[in-house]
């Protein structure tokens, strides 16, 4: 079940927030909730309206696609990694299903409220978006290599 928990230490130690101004950090601290999920608990399903942006404090999440009665894990994400970035965009349904692979401790931000804060303070918004773009770009690169199916015979580098 979803439970709130308490973050030991400050947001400063989270790599995603590294280098942010103290004023920006306190803005985030005001918006963030700590949550825990049990092993195998579904965090969100495909099609769910996006709502939260998550940073994993401990444990792992598996992103899954369900098709033809079969669930395929397409990516696992671990400590200090982020997921649920579609919540940073207005009215986007979730493309994947997210599940706690182990008992999970995350920091969650309500998407609409985070967006609002970005709109109000563009400097804060830009600093956040830069970090997000870097995450997205990294993830995209890894996905591109993954979809190459490079271990199949006939797939050449």
């Amino acid at each position: 079940m979803i439970r709130t928990a308490t973050l030991t230490g400050s947001y400063k130690q989270i790599p995603f927030f590294k280098g942010l101004d103290d004023s920006h950090l306190s803005k985030l601290e005001a918006l963030g909730h700590e949550l825990t999920f049990d092993r195998d608990q579904i965090i969100f399903r495909e099609g769910d309206e996006s709502s939260f942006f998550y940073i994993i404090l401990s444990g792992r999440v598996s992103l899954e696609v369900t098709a033809l009665g079969r669930t395929l894990r397409v990516q696992t994400i671990g400590e200090n990694e982020e997921f649920g970035w579609s919540s940073m965009l207005p009215s986007h349904g979730k493309q994947f299903q997210a599940r706690a692979l182990d008992s999970l401790h995350v920091l969650a931000f309500d998407g609409p409220r985070l967006r609002e804060a970005c709109e109000e303070d563009n400097t804060f918004g830009y600093a956040l978006m830069k970090r997000l773009l870097s995450v997205v770009s990294h993830r995209l690169l890894a996905m591109r290599v993954q979809v190459l199916d490079m271990y199949s015979p006939g797939v050449k580098g």
Binding site: T76, G78, L101, A142
Partner: peptide, 23 residues
């Protein structure tokens, strides 16, 4: 160990091998 795609019975990592560098 990681795989590009795994079913529900696979509880290890999923993603290209470079994603393991984080761990």
């Amino acid at each position: 160990t990681t795989v590009d795609y795994g079913g529900l019975s696979w509880r290890g990592y999923v993603g290209v091998v470079t994603t393991l560098f984080r761990y």
